[in-house]
């Protein structure tokens, strides 16, 4: 199988380049991550990428394969056009090869206060939450922070420092939607901003690429609806 992989060595001073690799490899049942590991183990130890769980739950190995942001570990090789072109996630700074600097992404995540705010005294047992209330969180809390959505979003490309991006906004909404959270107003105050939230123009790249099948655009829409309701 033929691969073209983005290479950048920060110590050499050389410009980034694409490097070709050929693996004698039966792609059946194999994923892009398997191929990256096989290349590293047998052809080129210097090829660098992140990986951890290798089953699509830890969010380490977001990369761009043939033009689409994916998790390498759950993307089947068989379906891919050759040479398989693998690049780092777009718009973030590249540290080395396929490894990007996620700090901006994490800053936006932390900015939405991604934790439950509830100032009531803690009850002796669990706080009650009906299955219907709990269902409001489904499709939100499963985010693995891989960055595939945010780095596929043109609004993020244009304003990466100011626009929070789909992942952070969806986590912001995850706590607004939680019946146990008491900080909705404070959260909406923070989000009501021409850049942080309103740079989302519903392009929906995020929905298309999310490897967990989540829908950040819908979550962002719900935040906007709440803001409108609050204004009325």
């Amino acid at each position: 199988m033929k691969f073209r992989i983005y290479r950048y060595d920060p110590e050499s001073g050389a410009a980034p380049r694409m490097q070709d690799y050929e693996l004698d490899y039966d792609p059946k049942g194999k994923k892009v991550l398997d191929a990256l590991i096989a290349i590293k183990d047998t052809l080129d130890e210097s090829l660098s990428f992140r990986r951890s769980c290798r089953e699509g739950v830890c969010g380490s190995d977001g990369v761009n394969v043939n033009g689409t942001n994916v998790l390498a570990c759950i993307t089947a090789l068989e379906d891919l056009k050759e040479p398989v072109e693998i690049r780092p996630l777009p718009r973030l700074g590249v540290i080395r090869d396929l490894i990007v600097d996620m700090e901006q992404f994490y800053q936006h995540y932390r900015a939405v206060k991604p934790y439950l705010i509830n100032l009531d005294p803690e009850p002796e047992n669990e706080r009650l939450q009906s299955p219907a209330e709990r269902a409001e969180l489904d499709g939100l809390w499963e985010c693995i922070l891989c960055g595939c959505c945010t780095t596929s979003c043109p609004s993020f490309w244009w304003n990466p420092e100011k626009f929070l991006g789909p992942a952070a906004l969806m986590q912001g909404y995850r706590f607004i939607a939680d019946s146990r959270d008491q900080a909705t107003d404070e959260r909406l105050d923070f989000l009501e901003d021409p850049y942080r939230l309103f740079r989302c123009h519903g392009i929906m790249n995020c929905v298309e690429v999310c490897p967990k099948g989540l829908n950040p655009t819908a979550a962002i829409g719900k935040i906007k609806t709440l803001l409108v309701k609050r204004a009325l």
């Binding site: 934790y115 439950l116 803690e122 047992n125 669990e126 299955p131 709990r134 939680d178 146990r180």
Partner: peptide, 14 residues
Amino acid sequence: EHMGLPFSRLPNGK
């Protein structure tokens, strides 16, 4: 649970 962990719930909310 108090920290915010989204446990699945029973019909009675527990």
